[in-house]
Nucleic acid binder design. Sequence first.
DNA 1: TTCATTGCAAAAGTTTTGCACGTGC
DNA 2: GCACGTGCAAAACTTTTGCAATGAA
Lengths: 142, 142
Amino acid sequence: MEIKDTVALLKSKGYRITPQRVAIIRILRDHEGHPGVEEVFRSVIQVHPNISMATVYNVMEVLEKEGIIKAIANSKKSRRYDSEVKPHGHFICNSCGRVFDIPMKYYEACLKVFPSEMTDFEVNSFELTIKGICPDCKKKLL
Amino acid sequence: MEIKDTVALLKSKGYRITPQRVAIIRILRDHEGHPGVEEVFRSVIQVHPNISMATVYNVMEVLEKEGIIKAIANSKKSRRYDSEVKPHGHFICNSCGRVFDIPMKYYEACLKVFPSEMTDFEVNSFELTIKGICPDCKKKLL
DNA sequence: TTCATTGCAAAAGTTTTGCACGTGC
DNA sequence: GCACGTGCAAAACTTTTGCAATGAA
């Protein structure tokens, strides 16, 4: 999504467009991978030297609530986010903790696993999480 | 798995069978749902009043490493475990944080989503995580 | 006996909160 | 100007670590 579209979306929801929010939105758009709060903070502090972690947490929460980013299910380490909100899977390396995207060519097949008897559950997001060892770590472990 | 089988497995891997480990294994077997470390601690402290969190963390880590329990991918709140290690999905309520099991009738269909070009990744676990609002919270939110 | 494991306490790391001040609208 | 958002500092939590004492094999 274009930055100005994201900004427009936030504005339409009644959020104020602060330079800190815009900066974080820009950083997330340019960032490759799956940054954590700490990583976003380290980037945004170069533009806004006085910004605090509390603000980063606040902005990330707003962006997640509005569906602009997605929190990644991740049992180890701390929270990470994905600015790709289209359904796809994640591979989490048990050794280095890195998160890899899995292209969900067969997403439709996966959708079928949601049982019909659970219709009372309101589905917001749908994520496939695979854990294991990534190729790099496999080499190192040998 | 029977407690004595779990104990035998640990013993065969060279772990010592301490009363604390046995107590936690027993608690996990009897516990319904998806306890966190804190919850396990509150149960085990009734049998071993001097046990410390560090020991609970230690035991849970051993059990997870040996495939006796599984850590649940969970971006919010703290780590939770599942003593059901057979592949199945989880529904995580964004409102109350509870974890519901999803019977994976269509697990085979889901397996297909792992792309053939990612053969260099070693898959340890495969989990479907769906987030949304559970029926109870939906009622409360109305 | 021996060495893995425990309990404790402290440290490290993550996330939340309260509040005064600043700023977008 | 008003109310929301920010920055700061402290608090609340979660998880890890170092080490002396303990106890399973």
